[in-house]
């Protein structure tokens, strides 16, 4: 029996652990890719190579070690991101850049494949098991030099091509290892300032939610209360050998107040603990010597806190 219980417990723990692991890696996204790098970002060898940027959408650090990057749909395990390098940890809402130079011996962040500007390029990120797809993207053929294929907003759906020259779109720049869009305002706050300067909208919405939460609790416990009263009435009927519901209702089975039980419990306590017919003390007129004085008694010294 014990072994069975332990087995179930371990199985639950393991499945929970696996879920946590999956949940962490699943917050990664392929965020921006440059296929032809002529004058853009340099790697740590001073070379201009194609690059792939990953983004951690979560607010917790994610270690990408052990995950797989590939450009081949039939080979998800093409490049295994090495373990044991602390730099593979991506901090909350931060980025990590990999160089697609087909020179993996140059270090953790150099992939075992390159990107070809003359055809569509497929990039996928797989979880540590090599079978669970986390994210994939297909970059259109004919990418211009020093242009990137990027998500409009970090980690969100919607891709666009970005370059290095100013266009009508103010966010058109290539942004390796940094946010695709730099927000210098708090959109939420601005929205409230614009549409709800008096606070009525907030009051109505928030009070609506507060009432909804407590009404849901109310409804649930109303039902639970009815069931509980019925069950305790049934138990009381069984104990008293009564089968007639009406009679049980008359006697108030199941709906007795807590005060009644408290009074009964108090009476029982008094009977068992405090009320004595025979006291065990001895009355005497002789002087009783005590072995302590106020000077040696802890009661009168430092252990006592001052009382008002």
């Amino acid at each position: 029996m014990n072994i069975k219980r332990i087995g179930i417990f371990v199985a639950i723990l393991l499945s929970a652990g696996a879920f946590v692991q999956a949940q962490q890696a699943s917050s990664l996204r392929i965020n921006e890719i440059m296929v032809v790098n002529e004058t853009n970002f340099q790697d740590d060898y001073g070379m201009h190579n194609a690059w792939v940027e990953l983004f951690n959408t979560s607010y917790g650090t994610v270690n990408v070690a052990g995950c797989f990057l590939t450009d081949d749909r039939n080979n998800p395990k093409k490049y295994s991101i090495p373990k044991g390098d602390i730099l593979t940890q991506i901090k909350p809402r931060q980025h990590l850049l990999f160089w697609a130079d087909n020179q993996p011996w140059r270090g953790t962040f150099h992939l075992s494949f390159t990107l070809d500007p003359n055809k569509e390029n497929y990039i996928a990120l797989y979880n540590t098991d090599g079978t669970t797809l986390i994210d994939e993207v297909t970059i259109p053929a004919g990418m211009l030099p020093d242009h990137s294929w990027a998500r409009t907003f970090d980690g969100k759906d919607g891709w666009e091509m970005r370059g290095t020259t100013v266009s009508s779109n103010e966010y058109w720049y290539v942004t390796p290892s940094t946010n695709n869009i730099t927000l210098d305002t708090n959109e939420k706050i601005e929205k409230f300032e614009r549409h709800d300067s008096v606070g009525i909208g907030m009051t109505v919405t928030a009070m609506g939610v507060v009432f909804t939460a407590l009404i849901l609790l109310y409804l649930f416990f109303r039902v639970i209360g009815v069931i509980s009263v019925k069950m305790s009435a049934r138990n009381a009927m069984k104990a008293h050998g009564i089968t007639d519901m009406e009679e049980a209702k008359e006697k108030g089975f199941g709906s007795r107040s807590g005060e009644e039980f408290a009074a009964i419990a108090m009476a029982m306590h008094e009977m068992q603990e405090d009320v004595h017919d025979i006291e065990d003390m001895v009355l005497t007129i002789n002087k009783v010597k005590r072995t302590y004085s106020p000077w040696s008694s802890k009661i009168y010294t430092l252990t006592e806190l001052p009382r008002k």
Partner: peptide
């Protein structure tokens, strides 16, 4: 449980 609603109403102070 209907007393829960009073706890909700008093939150008007916040807003």
């Amino acid at each position: 449980p209907k007393l829960m609603l009073i706890g909700a109403a008093a939150q008007f102070g916040i807003f």
